[in-house]
Design a protein around this nucleic acid. Structure first.
Length: 278
DNA sequence: GCGACAG
DNA sequence: ATCTTGTCGC
């Protein structure tokens, strides 16, 4: 298998060999409780900093009927949104989809996609999914930030957890992207995510939350700047990963490409793929 | 018991 | 996430 089992166990290092399939739901939840403790602390300590990323990593996955999950890690230039290179990982998920436990299904594949990259000094990670706007403050973006030891941001297309609080009427939006509200924690008095209407034709909101090592304000302004440079509803890092993972999953099923050939896709840049992006 | 429920 | 044709709009 190309996928390597790997999850963050809440300690100080990534543990290899932990299999979600052989763990109880309770065990997985306990791991998240330890993760969020670390993440919330790192977010708190980041309130003084202001990160201006140069290179950003985007993570997303699609599914192939024949081979399972297809994860893509895209490296983009923050300023221009140009795709620099991307890594791919394919493998059967070790856990079914369970709301709140998505990380145990996809994080290992994301990590594997990252291993194929030749450049690893990116400044921030953008993940398709939530960060701390999660019932245990440990969404997949939080898992990835800790696993890769980098600031991480979650950009989700649907709400998972939190109480929506309107800041601006949608009708009052003059320019896009437009921040219309926030997701507040029903238990504590904190903001977990910002709700933003993108400037694309799709006016459904996206949810921006910090994963780890970054403040929510910093996470918001970074994503807002990338949304303005993108024609998509998603910021370019996850937009590239979304398009590439879906195309690769489809071509794998159609037999146009084989899993073994992805080892090559995982290294270096492939202009022919970039140009064929819709 | 009744909703809510990332990808 | 995925299953799927035509169709509305820039």
């Amino acid at each position: 298998m190309l996928i390597r089992l790997l999850v963050w166990n809440g300690g100080n290092e990534v543990i290899r060999g932990t299999d979600p399939h052989n763990s109880s739901i309770r065990d997985l939840i306990n791991i998240q409780l330890r993760i969020s403790e670390k993440a919330l602390k790192s977010i708190e300590q980041s309130k003084a900093h202001r990160l201006k990323p140069t290179i950003v990593l985007g993570l997303d996955a699609a599914y192939s009927r024949k081979y399972g999950g297809v994860a893509v890690a895209s490296l983009v230039q923050a300023e221009s949104c140009n795709l620099i290179e991307y890594g791919v990982a394919v493998g059967e998920p070790r856990l079914e989809y369970i709301p709140g436990l998505l990380a145990f299904r996809e994080a290992a594949l994301f990590y594997a996609a990252t291993e194929g990259l030749s450049y690893k000094n990116y400044d921030v990670i953008v993940v398709d999914g939530h960060g701390i706007s999660h019932p245990r403050y440990a969404g997949i973006a939080t898992h990835m930030g800790l696993a890769l030891a980098k600031p991480s941001i979650g950009v989700a297309k649907k709400k998972l957890y939190g109480e929506f609080n309107m800041i601006n009427e949608r009708s009052s939006c003059i320019e896009y992207p437009c921040v219309i509200g926030e997701l507040r924690d029903p238990k504590r008095d904190i903001v977990l995510a910002y709700v933003v209407i993108p400037k694309s034709r799709d006016k459904n909101p996206i949810y921006i939350s910090p994963g780890a090592f970054i403040s929510i304000e910093n996470a918001l302004n970074i994503i807002l700047s990338m949304l303005r440079a993108s024609s998509s509803k998603l910021p370019c890092p996850t937009h590239y990963s979304d398009k590439l993972s879906k195309r690769i999953a489809r071509e794998l099923d159609k037999g146009i490409i084989r899993p073994e050939s992805l080892k090559h896709l995982g290294l270096g840049t492939l202009d022919k793929y970039i140009h064929r992006l819709s």
